[in-house]
Structure formats: C-alpha cells, structure tokens
Amino acid sequence: MNVSDMNDSAVNQARAMVYRLLSSLFAKEIDHQILHELTGEQAQAFLAQLASEPAFKQDIDTLISVLNTLKTDKALLELAADYCGLFLVGSKHSASPYASLYLNGSDHETPLFGEQHQQMLQFLKQSKLQVQTSFPEPADHLAVILAYVEHLCLNSDKTTQLNFIESNLNNWLGNFAAKVIECDSGQFYCALARLTKNWVASDLDDLKSES
C-alpha cells in the first residue's frame, strides 16, 4: 500500500463515518444512548472538526445546541414527536424519507415498496447486504441509502460511488430537505436535512474532481 492509497483509505473511512452518522440519525429517534454518545468527547470532537468546513458549520452548531438542550425525558420526547411527525406518519404533510415519494412527481403519492425499493434491494444484494430485520422499512428509506453509501465508501471505486449517489440519493435529497424544512416544527431535523444535503453535494464535488 502506498502513501496515496493510505490517504484514500483514511479519507474514505472518514466519509463512511459521516454517512453512518447521518444514516443513524435518520433511522430512529434520539434516545438516551445516542444522546450520550453524541454529547461525548469523541463525537463532539468529530462534529467540531466537521464544523470547521464553513458549509456545515451553522447546521452542526444547531445540532449541537439542540442536543445540549435535551436534558429531560420530556425534551427527548418533544424531539421524538418532531421525528414522528416528519418521518413516521403519512406523506403529504410530512417529509417521509422514501426516495419513491420524491422521484415520481410531486402530486402523486406512489405506493411504497415499489420500483425504488426493488432497485435498492438489488444494490444491496449485489453487495451481499440486506436491511436489518430490526429496521422494517422499505429499502429506499434515506437511512438505508446513506448506510449503503457508507458501505460503498469503504468497498467500491469512486465512479461507482459517484454514479450511485447521483442517481439514487442526490436526485431527491434536495426535495426531501426542502420538505423537512417546510414541515419541521423544531430545528434539529431541519439542520440535519440541510447538513445531509450540503454534505452530499460537497462529497459529490470531491468525487467528481477526483475521478
């Protein structure tokens, strides 16, 4: 392994970690354990480093400041209610995190478990992966797609990553983020959605410039 490979490997691990973090935060509500980890030293250092990039700073500051307010069970429940209203119920008045709802025209609520779900299952299968049984969601759920990019960061070449992100994530992420910003009654998920959008955009720029 030469120096360049080592650099690449380190960078990809870092990228994978960011995707993993974003996937986890979209996968479920913040509970005591996640809160504990996110407010721990390691995560704070990680987030601080991420925030050194100006495009991410404001949203990371928001995330950190919201996390710091979660001192009581009630505060956690309020944030869980934000999560629920955005991602767990309905579609039109919320920001359901399924690719299919954003890729098939804005007025039409496509039934779930359709084409995008099948496509993702194929990708996963090719990579010898599947969605955890403890995560009973369609495979075109944002958390699944982000977790798959995490996997690609560590296991595939840049062109594969670029193609996947462009045609399965970046093509709807903007609309999704806009919907979160429109519907969120709090600040956390707005910031998270914006951060995700900005992160993916910057990651794509890098991949393009490097490939």
Partner: peptide, 16 residues
Amino acid sequence: LVSTSYVVLSGASVLA
C-alpha cells in the same frame, strides 16, 4: 475527521 475518532455512534447499522 479521521484523526478525531473512529467511533461516533456505536449502534448497529441499518444494514446487515
């Protein structure tokens, strides 16, 4: 980022 930590969240991935 790498230098900060390798473990941000210890929970399982949604993939297996």
